Amino acid sequence: MVFQFLLLRNLEVWLTTRLLRSPVFHRMVGRVHQKVQHVRHGIPPEEMGGTRQDKNGPGLKQFFAYFKEEIRDQMKGNPPNKL
């Protein structure tokens, strides 16, 4: 009875070690992790073909509005820090 337990325990350790050393197992775990991250946080821009944004997107409009406001403030002599 004890011998069978030790034999099964050794087999379990050997199989676990072999599984954890397998590159196929690690690729599968990586893909599952990637899918979970995509479901949680969405697909990152790097994987959608780059970080290029539309030329007339909201970020560009906000930048120009902020830039114009800063130029106006500098011409009036207001302090630059607006925190």
Results as ranks from 00 to 15, higher is better:
residue 20 L to H: 12
residue 43 I to N: 11
residue 66 Y to N: 14
residue 81 N to R: 12
residue 14 W to V: 12
residue 15 L to K: 10
residue 51 T to I: 06
residue 24 V to L: 14
residue 56 N to L: 08
residue 40 R to K: 12
residue 83 L to A: 08
residue 7 L to G: 05
residue 64 F to C: 08
residue 5 F to G: 10
residue 74 Q to V: 03
residue 59 G to R: 11
residue 6 L to A: 06
residue 76 K to H: 08
residue 57 G to K: 01
residue 64 F to R: 11
residue 58 P to W: 01
residue 50 G to N: 05
residue 14 W to G: 14
residue 50 G to Q: 03
residue 65 A to C: 09
residue 72 R to P: 03
residue 9 R to F: 04
residue 65 A to E: 15
residue 76 K to Y: 01
residue 16 T to F: 05
residue 17 T to Q: 12
residue 18 R to P: 00
residue 28 M to R: 09
residue 57 G to W: 00
residue 4 Q to E: 15
residue 67 F to P: 07
residue 59 G to L: 10
residue 12 E to N: 13
residue 76 K to V: 05
residue 15 L to T: 04
residue 49 G to M: 03
residue 33 H to N: 09
residue 67 F to V: 05
residue 45 P to V: 00
residue 65 A to D: 15
residue 30 G to V: 00
residue 62 Q to R: 12
residue 5 F to P: 06
residue 5 F to S: 11
residue 16 T to N: 13
residue 19 L to T: 06
residue 15 L to Q: 12
residue 79 P to G: 04
residue 48 M to Q: 14
residue 11 L to I: 05
residue 68 K to D: 15
residue 22 S to G: 02
residue 23 P to A: 04
residue 8 L to S: 12
residue 83 L to I: 02
residue 74 Q to H: 13
residue 71 I to C: 11
residue 54 D to N: 11
residue 77 G to M: 07
residue 46 E to C: 11
residue 60 L to H: 12
residue 12 E to G: 13
residue 33 H to C: 06
residue 10 N to G: 12
residue 64 F to P: 06
residue 6 L to M: 07
residue 37 Q to L: 14
residue 4 Q to R: 14
residue 17 T to V: 05
residue 57 G to I: 00
residue 71 I to D: 10
residue 19 L to G: 02
residue 48 M to T: 09
residue 65 A to T: 14
residue 11 L to W: 01
residue 73 D to K: 13
residue 59 G to H: 09
residue 23 P to Y: 00
residue 73 D to M: 10
residue 54 D to W: 03
residue 45 P to Q: 01
residue 31 R to G: 04
residue 20 L to V: 04
residue 65 A to Q: 15
residue 76 K to P: 03
residue 73 D to F: 01
residue 44 P to Y: 00
residue 39 V to I: 14
residue 40 R to P: 01
residue 64 F to G: 04
residue 1 M to I: 06
residue 40 R to W: 02
residue 58 P to R: 11
residue 37 Q to V: 01
residue 34 Q to S: 10
residue 14 W to R: 14
residue 21 R to V: 01
residue 45 P to S: 03
residue 83 L to K: 09
residue 80 P to R: 13
residue 78 N to P: 06
residue 36 V to R: 09
residue 70 E to M: 09
residue 44 P to L: 03
residue 15 L to I: 02
residue 23 P to E: 00
residue 55 K to N: 08
